[in-house]
Design a protein around this nucleic acid. Structure first.
Lengths: 202, 202
DNA sequence: TCATTATACTAACAAACGTTAGATATTTGA
DNA sequence: TCAAATATCTAACGTTTGTTAGTATAATGA
């Protein structure tokens, strides 16, 4: 699986931007990593800004694939216990966390969120918004099926997901320094267990 | 209350770094905002890096003052209900959130966390670590006083504080665009209420 | 008061920046 | 097979970068 020059530029830029930020990386640094002269880059991207834009756009499209479609939820939830459902979701999430590409995109969004309006939009809408909206529907359905206590599903969505975001932030910092992440991972498990205990219908 | 030139440089640098990041701001941009020539800056700071270092160090000292001393906890907790204690803490926290200086430092830490090891250390130790350690002691004492249910105090600390970090991140993005933040603020209140309901000792 | 110290200025530096023009080589499609 | 399109190269451009040297002015302390 060989990459085109454009893809190599994309990857090198993502790698460098996610460490030093957009302003901290030069065209020459990117092309040096790819193995071409700096002028050649302009055959593939209009300018430096266009590389970042391509990365952010690609991520936006990519992220929308990680959640199961809402139409299939009734079927899934009728055959799956809340515990299994959440733990499966956690497993998917963990996979995303451990993927180096996912870590780079997360870091890039963190670094650029206050310089790049598009990054803010992705964090707010795709990251916070979409996940919470999805979970709200999930918990609403679980309540209708009397599988969990009848709390406000929106509140449940936040109570479940927001700690996960913080744990993910902590995880990515530790991972960046190559430090041990088992504690954060066990905290994520503890969080899910705690949450399940709280919402359980006796 | 007039500022010295050094303080003006400090403030201008914090202001600009928190919007564009360290690499995105030039010495000339800082000195233009202060109203001096770029060479004059070097009478106050050794180089550009030293300004960032001064900002991060100042924040570290500053942040350690926001939590009440552990020695005074027994006295406070014996006369204060959990609900009042947490809501007072929330009020202090909100004040910090609404302070423009606090927002700038938060943004700076977010932007620089992967370029600057010191920023990572502050986020991990001061932000995550210290707050959770403090809350663990608080909940441990509340449990000993039989004021709340006997959950693992460390888990309670995380369940309480980690959603607050995520809400704070969301709050700061909205605030940066001048958008409405009442929804995030009400979510913070809902979180506290939910948490109190869960840990209440019947 | 006067020497010293601190702070501001002008001017310049070498290096790095993003980007372009134009020549050369490689790949593609009729 | 050969013209057209695409990708790479060398070389250079005008700016901006962080920083320094040297000089003038203002504040400080004996």
């Amino acid at each position: 699986m060989t990459l085109t020059t454009k893809e190599k530029i994309f990857q090198a830029a993502l790698d460098l931007f996610s460490q030093k930020g957009f302003s901290g990386v030069s065209i020459r640094e990117i092309t040096r990593q790819v193995g071409i002269k700096e002028s050649s880059l302009y055959n593939h991207f209009k300018n430096k800004e266009a590389i970042l834009e391509a990365i952010l756009t690609h991520f936006r499209v990519d992220f929308s694939k990680t959640l199961p479609p809402v139409d299939s939820l009734d079927k899934i939830l009728s055959t799956t216990e809340p515990e299994t459902f959440l733990k499966t979701g956690h497993s998917n999430f963990k996979q995303y966390m451990e993927d180096p590409q996912g870590q780079k995109i997360w870091r890039l969004l963190q670094i650029e969120q206050f310089r790049e309006p598009f990054a803010r939009e992705i964090i707010l809408k795709d990251f916070f918004g979409e996940t919470v909206d999805f979970l709200e529907i999930v918990f609403q359905k679980m309540i209708a099926m009397k599988k969990i206590k009848a709390f406000d599903p929106k509140i449940l969505a936040i109570e479940y997901q927001y700690p996960v975001f913080s744990l993910l932030a902590e995880y990515n910092i530790l991972k960046f320094d190559g430090k041990d992440t088992t504690q954060v991972e066990s905290r994520l498990n503890q969080h899910i267990d705690f949450f399940l205990e709280v919402i359980r219908n006796e």
